[in-house]
Write a protein that binds this DNA or RNA. Structure first.
Lengths: 244, 244
DNA sequence: TCCCTGTGCTTACCGGGTAACCTCGTCCAT
DNA sequence: ATGGACGAGGTTACCCGGTAAGCACAGGGA
């Protein structure tokens, strides 16, 4: 739903056609999540079907020619009343976090831990390397804006970097992109911390199993410590109450 | 790919039929991510198509009746050699974190920050409430194992809790479920921290904008028409001066 | 002239995910 | 015994997110 809702939000600002939607979306997220043009159109058409969006009537016949420079021969879309309602409702409703999305890493480790013969430690170490790598990339991007886009999403897709920026107006877009990056950084840090945590738990469990004889891996003292060295990520000073 | 890979990993332990796959998957993730049976079968059939899995030949004719209690009339699946290779390769390869998955919340805030007339502070506050709520639920679950499942994933789906547990063997499943919960907790904490961070950044930005005169932060529209109307989003009264 | 590039758009296709449905076999009450 | 309820096991149709390939058209050089 994120794309769908995002498009509605963009259309709430002004009518646009498909390419513009894509451009705006990517500009404001710093190109972090490239948006396939096909998806834009199918999504918009679904929105039309659902009555949230309607095509702006083309000036085709008759009154086209007056004042407005409605020269574009392209189909533009705008919100209906229902669409506007959906937009405000989206802003008013938090993103649901209660039936969390499937996380491949969590699933993988859950299965690894319960599968005989899997080298869990190895899995964790390799994952940590990978996650640290991406974390480093993110922080580097943060320091060197690189004139954004590119970078992430390794897939080819011709680079466009160019001086497309409307000179002044989008300090706001820079802010947004910077916040998105922070989000990725915070997420990666949490993942690292979790990996450390898992490793510690496993070490403790296997140690106990060893010393206490075979007695079935006692089920988890409910709480524990979060050891990690707080990994110093520039600009990611943690604000609120620690992890625990 | 998480489900697909997970099924391969499960089948690496022993041949199973669809229902068993679902049970095992849910047991080891503590029911955090309920798996629709239809998805199991379509996924398994794709695996068969791709040569990673094959049905165990039914004991139909002839030699069925010897020693093995191969009494099940149901189709069971097992890995092929290619499947086993895929499994070990999955364990050996970290989950990619470089083209991060779309995160609805990050997208939403990026758009909120760049949209005129959106009450960003309100969005953040509501989200924080929601995320804190789920965080609380997670930690409560952690303290009170509740005999797991249920709880998350509000959708109906008859509860089954029962004493299905194979008495001893799955202290490991408890461990796995506990780790999954930790993962959710770490993620939620990171989200909270990020929300705080965003709020602080916005406060700082708006403060600077205020003291330094109007300077930057001009109108938004990089392209064409900017109907001065500023779109009257009904009910989206900007409570705070955070942005703009 | 021809070709390249960029804009705007369409289409076919795939995989994840859900819901509704079907078939058996077993158990139990009438 | 019969027939309903129920659970295990499985199939199907459908939707949505997402990708790739292609079409049409308009400048702008070499």
């Amino acid at each position: 739903m994120s794309v769908r809702n995002g498009l509605v939000a963009l259309l709430a600002e002004q009518p646009m056609h498909g390419y513009q939607l894509r451009q705006e979306f990517e500009r404001r997220t710093g190109g972090t999540w490239p948006l396939n043009i096909g998806q834009v159109y199918t999504t918009v058409h679904r929105l039309v079907r659902d009555g949230l969006v309607e095509p702006v009537p083309q000036g085709g016949t008759g009154s086209t020619d007056d004042a407005s420079e409605d020269d574009a021969p392209f189909e533009r879309f705008r919100l209906t009343d229902a669409g506007r309602a959906a937009a405000t409702s989206w802003w008013a409703t938090p993103v649901e976090r209660g039936a969390p999305a499937r996380d491949e890493l969590a699933i993988k480790l859950a299965l690894a831990v319960t599968s005989p013969g899997v080298d869990v430690r190895g899995v964790i170490q390799r994952q940590r390397t990978e996650t640290l790598r991406s974390l480093r990339d993110f922080t580097r991007l943060k320091v060197t804006p690189d004139h954004r886009r590119a970078a992430l999403a390794g897939g080819g897709q011709a680079g466009d970097v160019g001086p497309v920026d409307t000179p002044v107006a989008d300090a706001r877009a820079d802010l947004a992109w910077s916040l998105v990056l922070d989000s990725l950084i915070f997420g990666a840090e949490a993942e690292i911390r979790w990996l450390d945590h898992v490793e510690a738990r496993l070490a403790r469990a296997s140690h106990e199993a060893a010393t206490l004889g075979s007695a079935a891996v006692p089920a988890v003292p409910p709480t524990d410590a979060a050891p990690p060295g707080r990994l110093g990520v520039p600009g990611a000073a943690s604000a609120s109450g620690a992890d625990r």
